[in-house]
Computed example of a mutant assay.
Amino acid sequence: MASALTAYDVPEIRARMTEWARDPGTDGAGNWFRFFVGPRPDDSAGEPAFPPLDDVGATITDTLRAQLPAAELFYVSADLTDLASHAATTLADYRLHPEDLPAPVGFLVYEHPPVAGTASARHDAVSVVSWGLGRGGLWVQAWGAVPDPEPPAVEVGRGLARLSRDYALSQMRKAAALNLPLPTPGNKPASHDDTVDHGAKHILATFLRNAERAPIPPSFAPPHGYEWCGVTPMLFTDMKGWPSSLAEGTSAVDIDAQIALQRTILTTWLLLGQTLVRSEHTRAPRAARRPPPYRTLRPRPRHSRPPRRPPARPHHARRPIPGRRRRGHPRIPPQLGRARPLAQAVLPEPR
């Protein structure tokens, strides 16, 4: 089991991802997205962020290359992670507004994954979220740690990457011609060696289409240690709530897990604007390159008071300046404010 992330890990994780996003080689983000995502995934149809002639993989890469270095950094403590997960269960559909975001461009790391069951066969549960404005609205991208030990697909993929491209493609085409079903307990071969061989051939066939459009990435999993788990382009003006659409054929269990994750991220953003969250500005260790400041976020202690507000100004002094848009505090849905267990756990006792 991977150890919990600390606040000092945040700048290093972001730096590794930024380097990967800028890498033009076969192990960089551009080739990784060409291989795994391609120009037009089936589940991108109808997304306003991806016009019909768009190269989806290239668009995602360009967005990450621009947003990761500019992102404001956040670290969410285990207590606040658990609080957000619990509060998300009371959150009904909510229209997101730009002022609800803790920063226009952000990179947020949870001390531990906030929602179980958001893993696929190739990555662990989501623990990192990045966001920023992109074509079609707000882009929210989720990342999961590559598990240790790594999945068999990663080992097979790295083995293929060491072969010549022509030979690797010939082996993958032979495997695809066998038309083997996905290994399951019902069609499991008799011996262990045959089971391994069956699984390897199925992986070869699965990635044939990918290898025909781009070189196989040498690391197969991104070298910074986090798998990209998807992007959710959202329109502020046309969204009655999260989650967004999910691909057809997704199981009910996976849909429930993704809904819980997306609502937890949204709830985390809303909580960051409340007095019940304590924000600490932190700097990375001296040894880190160009240590950027970042914020560690924790629930405010139960008996601490929120900061005093300055005396109210006269009514006439608070009129908005003509031509300038007033920006209010992030709105929090009333159902969160009504959650008695949540309020009792984090707000000071009334006097």
Rank of each mutant, 00 (worst) to 15 (best):
P334N: 09
H315W: 15
A66T: 11
K201I: 09
E99K: 14
T61F: 12
R309H: 15
S85M: 00
I259Q: 01
T61G: 13
P285F: 10
H315E: 14
A211T: 04
L68D: 01
P39K: 01
S245D: 04
S245W: 07
E248N: 06
V253Y: 02
P48H: 00
R14Q: 14
A87Q: 03
A153F: 15
P310D: 12
D79H: 09
Y226H: 10
E12Y: 05
R286S: 03
P330K: 10
R278H: 10
K201E: 02
L261Y: 02
E212Q: 13
G46W: 05
A312T: 01
R325S: 11
T184Y: 06
W139V: 03
W269L: 02
W269M: 00
R313Y: 01
K188R: 11
M1L: 06
P98E: 12
R135K: 04
A288P: 12
R95H: 11
D194N: 08
A345P: 03
P98V: 12
T232C: 13
P330S: 07
E99Q: 15
D166K: 15
Y75I: 13
V129C: 02
T89R: 10
A58S: 10
L208N: 02
L182F: 14
A252D: 07
P149V: 05
S245T: 08
S44G: 00
S3Y: 10
P306A: 03
D43E: 05
A287Y: 07
A58H: 09
Q344M: 14
F107K: 06
W131E: 02
Q344N: 14
T90E: 13
L68A: 14
W228I: 02
P299Y: 15
T195K: 09
V156Q: 05
L235Y: 08
Y94M: 12
P104V: 07
L96F: 14
A247C: 01
A7N: 09
P11F: 10
A175T: 03
P330G: 04
F36I: 00
T268M: 07
S120I: 08
P350I: 12
R327C: 13
S164P: 04
A257R: 12
G117L: 11
